[in-house]
Amino acid sequence: MDGSRRAFLKTAGCAILGAGLAAPIARTVGGAVSADATPGELKAGRWAIVVDVRKCLQRENCRACIDACHVAHNVPLIKNPAHEIKWIWKEPFKDTFEAEAHPHLDKGLAGQHVLVLCNHCDNPPCVRVCPTKATWKRADGIVMMDQHRCIGCRYCIAGCPYGSRSFNWQDPRPFITTGIKPEYPTRMKGVVEKCTFCTERLLKGLAPACVEVCNKVAGPGTMTFGDIRDPGSDVVRMLKTGFSIRRKPGLGTEPQIFYLV
């Protein structure tokens, strides 16, 4: 037995391990990230969307918001429901609001489809469970994704009570049938994605694509985007016009998509 060689390997191994651990620990302890302001950027204390279900339901087959969003963000169109990617879509009322559904509910409403998207929760479980901080909550409440850091463990999907997150089971690019929009990055296989409240548009002073197109197609106020912390904002004003509900409020996630019913 070569005792000195073994001793050397032991020491070298410990040294490498120690050096490797030092860097991330130092990074965790120090340093906050600061973002520079962009002129003309839309800003808020807490972004929220109000969906007026009463108006939305009048246009049963309307897909304007879905198409606008998915085209703008290079969301692939995958036919197999097992591997679909969805940022905003429609679900039956009785499944979206199962606590509100009952056997005597107006048949029209029970069978209707309502819009669903990421709720940008104030207390997001996806952020709580992510092991790499690849998903996080911005100061203005938007729950963001870093597809370059995501390891694809899908823990956030398990943690989301709304099914709002999609995983790229394969390379999504061949499925972008409407032509890749170079203004927005495509994703790679093995990472999670979801609605971002169009942060790229907010930077330019524009409302999210879904809201913009919806108000054109279905009339103003069908979808409203604004600062829920600002008592004079459009979203706060809309919430005063009727009774509003949120998805699974009992879980304490504090969803920021409000539905006027």
């Binding site: 790499t132 995501c150 390891i151 463990c153 899908r154 790229n168 296989k189 990472v191």
Partner: peptide
């Protein structure tokens, strides 16, 4: 993992 090369993240 969807992106196994990043597991050390």
């Amino acid at each position: 993992m969807g992106q196994p090369t990043r597991v050390l993240n």
